[in-house]
Amino acid sequence: MIRVQREDFDPGVELEAMTRGKTHIGGVTSFTGLVRDMAGGTAITAMTLEHYPGMTEKQLAEIEAEAHRRWPLDAVLIIHRYGELKPGDRIVLVATASSHRDAAFDSCRFMIDWLKTKAPFWKLEATDAGSHWVEAKESDDAAADRWRQS
């Protein structure tokens, strides 16, 4: 399931809803991304996430579908927020559930790595000295490349 929303979410509630009634699930792996209070030694006062309505959901759905193609998953959840966030706020929740832990761990890592390089979101960081757009990291490309299949 994919959700792109302005509102906060409760990871505990979401994970409970994801697995409720599905007693064949053996394990759930989740990743929660948070707004850090520092970037490159500078204090962050706020972070605004912009997205491309329509395309963002489409790309996240493709990431979800790709995870299902690669691993035997019983449930997949991606929640990503947009709008203005503060340090400590939740940005993203990625969770995968499977009968066995290897599939849950590997697919969760895959989804956050792919999301970071494919889902159209952009971070604008505000500091006391002004605001700036976060630049894409080569390390994120390298992380996504690990999952490329020839």
């Binding site: 491309y52 999301l115 159209p120 971070k123 630049e135």
Partner: peptide
């Protein structure tokens, strides 16, 4: 039309074209 394309992609009259920097979500 909400899918990534390369610069040699051929355009049609009714296309929706998005131009943006490398993404930084997650």
């Amino acid at each position: 039309n909400r899918e990534y394309v390369t610069y040699d992609h051929r355009l049609n009259a009714g296309d929706e074209v998005g131009l943006f920097p490398p993404v930084t979500g997650g």
